[in-house]
Write a protein that binds this DNA or RNA. Structure first.
Lengths: 198, 198
DNA sequence: GCATACGCTAAGCGCTTGCTTAGTTTGCAA
DNA sequence: TTGCAAACTAAGCAAGCGCTTAGCGTATGC
């Protein structure tokens, strides 16, 4: 009970510190003091500093994969589905921008084994977006010449927002996600004339 | 003469190391040995490790601002101008992905004074893109409801590519930049029906 | 009422860090 | 030939690093 709480307090402290100073810029003493504990207490609940990063990164990647997968299953209409996927993916990054920064920018700090495991989840995210575009093209609703490249561009909208988004700024997470969803549709929608020609 | 060469060899070594391991993950001994010098030689040519980062970051920001400013001046046609701006901005990031990673991801490692100076250049980049969009809207050629948000999204295409782009991969820098330029036009172009209504 | 296990800390080990100091080498002006 | 500045290195300092060890207090099962 208290075991779980202390472990999670340390994980939350690690998220704060990694997001603010990066993995290499964070000391185990930082994490411990943010969690209100002595430096040695970190090692009661976590093996190494890197395993803390791996736990945070794995959880973050799983969440964002879950979010985009769930969105992909909400509709059979390619346009509405794409709108939901981009909206939810960008919203998740805005609502979790600290975890998002760790997910996106600290990938290289993982051990090769952990990196390989997380790379699989990343491929899953890209695949989900590619499949949604391919289905829309098949149904004649979307016009996408370069599916992998366009999928990456759509994901970039969500990914890159963690670099500058601040909660409580001039723009809400919902407004940003709505904008991204609209831009995504415009990037991929087949023009009326070419749709008529089908 | 040799002074300039040694100074630049150290800067190149710093670019390699910062891009690969991040600023905090890089040691001054890394930089020195990559430049084929002793650790102390770094301090003959540069004040601190952070001043090396500042020099690299400042030069990188200036280059990318120059690139997008020059592109903004190539045409009066809003569509062609936007296409050129996005193409050149993404191309620069693909051709300079190591410097791009430092520019984008090591901003927080700068001292507050240096950060403030570089923030000005960043605002210049955003302003240039916003002005191009606003002019296109004024001329009735583009349809952009949220100009600051859309400008950020267009820049995100170039910025985020440094996270995954590898020279010599399946995609050339030119192909990627061409794709981004096309997507940018689709994101912002006024639809024929709404253009007719003007 | 005692033994045991658990959550945690004080102290610190061996190593690496950014940077400095003191001194050597080199090339060139007078 | 001498004098001197500039480029560079060997050695090392103080501080900070990830992580370990030894031990303390407390709660729980018996």
């Amino acid at each position: 009970m208290t075991n779980i709480t202390a472990r999670e307090r340390l994980l939350n402290a690690a998220v704060e510190s990694f997001a603010e100073k990066g993995f290499s810029g964070t000391t185990t003493r930082d994490i411990a003091s943010r969690a209100g504990m002595s430096p040695a207490a970190v090692y009661v609940h976590h093996d190494t500093k890197e395993s803390l990063l791996f736990t945070v990164s794995l959880e973050g990647h799983r969440h964002s994969l879950d979010v985009i997968s769930a969105a992909a299953a909400t509709s059979n209409d390619p346009v509405e589905r794409l709108r939901t996927m981009v909206y939810d993916f960008s919203l998740w990054h805005a609502d979790n921008s600290r975890v998002g920064r760790i997910v996106q920018y600290e990938f290289h700090a993982l051990t090769p084994e952990h990196r390989a495991e997380i790379a699989k989840l990343r491929r899953g995210i890209e695949k989900t977006m590619q499949d949604a575009l391919a289905d829309g093209v098949d149904k004649g609703v979307l016009d996408v010449a370069d599916i992998p490249g366009t999928a990456l561009a759509l994901l970039s909208l969500g990914v890159d927002l963690v670099r500058w988004f601040v909660p409580g700024g001039t723009r809400t997470a919902d407004e940003l996600a709505t904008l991204h969803a609209e831009l995504a549709v415009r990037m991929t929608l087949r023009a009326p004339s070419s749709r008529a020609s089908r």
